[in-house]
């Protein structure tokens, strides 16, 4: 097992598996968030369940945090190793001639997504922890929609979220299909996986951006 962890392929598989786990989580997160546009009551119900269900809070949430930490720590380790592997840098290196920009700049799109996660945790997760465990407020299953709308009132936050979703899109565009290649899946289904990746990489971040913009502009319009 130690040998497995030390190998380059195993490290890549860790990246791929944690990445796919996070991709699946994104779909769940998006589904719940989207209810806020359709029905505030349903959104409140879902949010309250996620916030107070012990399985979600004390099993799924730590697994999710571990998945995020593993993915970015391993990403940074791989990036450092990859930089070292070149040794003396090229005077001229035409990376654009043979590989798309997104695949060559995963570390940058990933860094923006990581910075966004910091802001997102500060905005919602830390607030939630303080509400429940520091201030020890009583349960209020109706507060979530109003809190979300309030968060998106400042334009700077909405813009930062939308920009981050753009970078998330680029990260998914390469990362999702790439995970299957890493795990050894390159066969007749690969074109379908690549096409699905492209749809997912555009649709999910676009949906998240729409939700952020909706909650910013909806109170202004009405």
């Amino acid at each position: 097992m130690t040998k497995l962890i030390q190998s380059s392929i195993a490290r890549k598989v860790v990246m791929a598996l944690s990445g796919i786990f996070l991709v699946l989580f994104l779909a769940l997160h998006f589904t719940i968030n989207f209810t806020s546009v359709i029905s505030p009551d349903t959104f409140n119900e879902f949010s309250h369940f996620m916030g107070y269900n012990p399985v979600v809070q004390f099993l799924m949430q730590p697994i999710l945090i571990a998945g995020v930490v593993i993915h970015f720590v391993m990403g940074i380790i791989l990036e450092i190793q990859n930089n070292r592997a070149r040794g003396v840098k090229y005077v001229q290196f035409k990376g654009s001639a043979n590989a798309p920009w997104v695949s060559r700049n995963m570390i940058y799109s990933g860094a923006v997504v990581l910075a966004f996660l910091g802001l997102h945790f500060y905005d919602f997760w830390l607030h939630e922890m303080a509400f429940k465990y520091v201030e020890v407020n009583p349960e209020d299953p109706t507060r979530y929609y109003a809190e979300t709308v309030e968060k998106f009132a400042p334009i700077w936050r909405t813009v930062l979220y939308v920009i981050s979703f753009g970078l998330l899109s680029l990260h998914l565009w390469h990362g999702f299909a790439s995970s299957f290649q890493t795990m050894g899946l390159n066969n007749k289904y690969t074109p379908a996986i690549v096409n699905f990746t492209k749809i997912y990489a555009v649709a999910i971040p676009l949906g998240f951006a729409f939700i952020a913009l909706y909650h910013h502009f909806n109170p202004i319009i009405h």
Partner: peptide
């Protein structure tokens, strides 16, 4: 040998 890790760029 110190080669880098594959990131599936396809280059």
């Amino acid at each position: 040998e110190g080669f880098g890790n594959c990131t599936n760029t396809g280059a």
